[in-house]
């Protein structure tokens, strides 16, 4: 055991961002293959086949899956016995910036002071790495490793996402049906269907959003529990279909995470209807010797 090298942290974060933005994971590709096999609407099949082929070409060319390369969101697990350099988080950010340059990310960071940024009055940065990541989430864990997950969140789902209270009436079904109905209201306007829904249920808006992000990180298309299937099936009943063209695959999967709750008739739910390429994510682990992707892909 020894100290984690700072250059390994930056290199791992760079590779993680590029992997997240340019490739499907095996479970994600399998979900599309299943959908293509089942779908009977020819327009819907055309979209599903195109999304899968696009993913294969993006991986082969190491090119962005989508021109909206997304906002980097970082979830970091910090081993309690990990020996880290003092500037480890800066190294993560440097790696993310370098990943945005080489992928390349879309140069969409807005110039100017606070008000100028809101009004987009000073134009955009030419450098993709000016797109700073959202504030990182850090979780403790056992061991000596540093684990970095990068998620790239596109703009379309952000228009359609909601974080609101739901009166649970002592029924989980009430909560998830309400959340599914929010998504059902939004999917036609989303455009980039099939959606992949991420849900977080917590005690505050911040916590529900964090849980939603963790659900995206941990979600597996091959493993869907009863409640996740309930949400997916409810959305699929809309018949909106891929790209809004009809068919039976409006939603490919739902990933949810439920946090601690408080005594109350209210639960705070964050629902994010991800686009057809999401979740765009990858995870790397760094130890004192080297770094590696979380799973062989």
């Amino acid at each position: 055991m020894g100290a984690i090298k700072r250059e390994n942290i930056a290199e791992a974060a760079e590779a993680c961002l590029v992997r997240a933005g340019t490739s499907f994971r095996p479970d994600q590709a399998r979900a599309y293959e299943r959908a293509i096999a089942e779908e009977t609407n020819p327009h819907a099949r055309w979209v599903l086949e195109g999304v899968l082929e696009n993913a294969r070409v993006a991986a082969r060319n190491v090119a962005p899956l989508c021109d909206d390369s997304g906002i980097p969101h970082l979830i970091i697990r910090l081993g309690q016995e990990a020996e880290l350099p003092p500037d480890w988080l800066s190294q993560v950010h440097q790696g993310v910036a370098q990943g945005l340059r080489i992928m390349p990310g879309r140069p969409m960071a807005v110039k100017g002071d606070a008000i100028q940024r809101i009004e987009q009055s000073q134009g955009l940065h030419d450098d993709p790495s000016a797109m700073l990541p959202a504030p990182a989430m850090v979780e403790p864990c056992k061991g000596t490793e540093l684990e970095i997950s990068v998620l790239l969140l596109g703009g379309g789902p952000e228009i359609r996402a909601r974080t609101r209270r739901i009166f649970h009436k002592r029924s989980a079904e009430n909560v998830f049906k309400q959340a599914a109905s929010w998504t059902a209201e939004e999917v036609q306007s989303l455009g980039c269907t099939p959606t992949v829904v991420a849900l977080g249920v917590g005690r505050s808006h911040q916590e529900a959003s964090a849980l939603m992000l963790q659900a995206m990180r941990d979600g597996d298309f091959d493993r869907q529990d009863r409640w996740e299937r309930l949400v997916t099936d409810t959305i699929n009943q809309t018949g909106v279909g891929p790209l809004g063209l009809g068919g039976s695959h409006t939603c490919l999967a739902t990933f949810m995470r439920i946090g601690p709750q408080r005594a109350s008739g209210v639960r705070i739910v964050c629902m994010r209807p991800g686009c057809c390429f999401e979740p765009r994510k990858a995870t790397v682990r760094v130890d004192s010797a080297a770094w590696r992707f979380d799973k062989p892909e």
Partner: peptide, 16 residues
């Protein structure tokens, strides 16, 4: 309805 950049082109939401 798209941006044009080294990241490519692709439709943005038209109902904005």
């Amino acid at each position: 309805h798209t941006a044009v950049s080294p990241a490519g082109i692709g439709p943005t939401t038209s109902n904005k």
